[in-house]
Design a protein around this nucleic acid. Sequence first.
DNA 1: TGCCAGGGGTTCA
DNA 2: TGAACCCCTGGC
Length: 291
Amino acid sequence: MEIVIDNDDIIIKKLENFDPEHIFECGQAFRWDREEDGSYTVVAFNRVLNVLKVGEDVIFRNTNLEDFENIWKNYFDLNTEYKAIQETFNSDETMKKCIEYGDGIRILQQDEFETIISFMISANNRIPQIKKSIRLICEKYGNFIETYNNRDYYSFPTPSELSICKPEDLREHCRVGFRDERIYKVANMIENGEFPFYDLKNKTREEIRDTLITLPGIGEKIADCITLFGYDKKDSFPVDVWIKRVMETLYFGKEVKKKEVSDLGRDKFGKYAGVAQQYLFYYGRENKIGK
DNA sequence: TGCCAGGGGTTCA
DNA sequence: TGAACCCCTGGC
């Protein structure tokens, strides 16, 4: 990896399988803004970063080498060879087409607590609304980080910071609707040690999923999303209405039960089913497959 | 301008 | 298994 440092910019030359648009627009993260120059500003781990792809190079702005090495390298999963993952799908012509379309997608290594709350908010919700609720929660319960491109950025609250919330504030001020009590309960269960949040990290996909599902507001789909996006379990295959539609159109040729979709997804794509899911999602949503 | 359907899911009956 | 749930947007 060839790194060039230029003031507050870190430039990675010829960075393969990396496209900010595909990374952020495939439904795995909600704390980003698209800028006029086509770059993306993202806030994570108490930092604000701007990412721009220029030809084969990627420019990471508003950061330094130390943060790049300690935070962003891991956040963007740069130690994983996506080319090798893609090759495991080589025998699947349909998937090859999806990869061609969505190449550059990476599974972000996001904060566990933020991922839990964010995907609880995603239940029966739309992306703009999810982003708005999360932004309001950060502004109300997180801490100010900095102003970048005329926008104020706040950290995502810790379990402790969010545990002092009132359900009515979550509803009325943060616009989370019927998810208010659930979020309040989960933050407090974690803060009070009533949920083994800090023991989950080294468990298997199944163990994490089964534990998460015991929380209010977390069912199968959201538990699968959290294991994939918050715990880096790449064999997780979340099935939402988009994945169901895409798989029905591209693989089944008819309507099937949700369980059939998740079974086929994990059988077919194995230990990288979650990466395949992201290619399918991006391809399906951008092309409105099945709609 | 105003009404209404529906959404990347979970819960409860 | 199916209806209800809050908020917001888009279509008419």
